[in-house]
């Protein structure tokens, strides 16, 4: 399916025929009371948080383990991610930005909800909501605080605004004390929020949920 998106038109990106057919079914079924939209939301949320971000977590864990891969990932995110076979139609232009001791990156889409879903699954509800979209640029420190993240004052926060053509994936910092871990164990430490930049990777043995 060719993408018709370009910079010089002003209407919303028209979804694919398949997506429109699903939308038609969903809106009719919800209107008739045959499915509960809240239950749908819970189910989709389960998959966006538990399944989708696993792709990204694999990419991050591999980058932590293999310096050559990390260099390729930072040089050309889409191409390096495609090495894993994650290259959905809209995943073609993914830029990976690296968190360091000096820089913390955070991703938003101020216009709508553009999101690197081949690596992160479906965007969480808060990502699509206007409070996050509005505040992420204006008050990133406050937003991070709401997510329970406090960074040292000398860390520069960079906020990246996604577009339909360009999406960002944050490469979080590898937690200390993880030298001996396998890639699979490392991937367990990579949360969805850490790849959006509204969280940090988990500490080994910390457990808990993203």
């Amino acid at each position: 399916m060719p993408s018709e998106h370009s910079h010089d038109h002003d209407h919303s990106e028209v979804p694919s025929d398949l997506a429109l057919r699903v939308k038609a079914l969903e809106s009719l079924l919800v209107e008739k009371g045959l499915v509960d939209p809240a239950a749908l939301e819970i189910l989709i949320d389960t998959y966006e948080t538990k399944v989708g971000p696993r792709n990204g977590a694999k990419v991050v864990a591999h980058a932590w383990s293999d310096p050559d891969y990390k260099a390729r990932l930072l040089a050309d995110g889409s191409k390096a991610i495609a090495e894993f076979g994650f290259d959905g139609r809209q995943g073609k232009d993914i830029v990976v930005v690296e968190n360091t001791e000096q820089v913390h990156n955070m991703v938003v889409c101020t216009l709508c909800s553009c999101y690197p879903w081949p690596v992160l699954g479906l965007p969480p509800v808060w990502y699509k909501a206007s409070p996050y979209r509005a505040r992420a640029v204006r008050d990133p420190v406050g937003v991070l605080k709401d997510f329970g993240v406090t960074l040292p004052e000398d860390v520069e926060i960079r906020v990246w605004d996604s577009t339909a053509e360009l999406r960002y994936l944050v490469l979080p910092q590898r937690p200390a004390g993880t030298e001996g871990l396998s890639e699979a164990d490392l991937a367990e430490l990579v949360t969805r929020d850490s790849m959006i930049g509204t969280g940090l990777a988990k500490q080994p043995g910390a457990g808990g949920t993203p």
């Binding site: 997506a19 699903v22 045959l34 696993r54």
Partner: peptide, 21 residues
């Protein structure tokens, strides 16, 4: 190992509709 994986959002929506119905 955790369950279905989706390539595009509509796939998850279609999946959820079948499960909920």
């Amino acid at each position: 190992e955790a369950g279905p994986v989706f390539r595009e959002p509509w796939e998850a929506q279609a999946f959820a509709l079948a499960v909920e119905l």
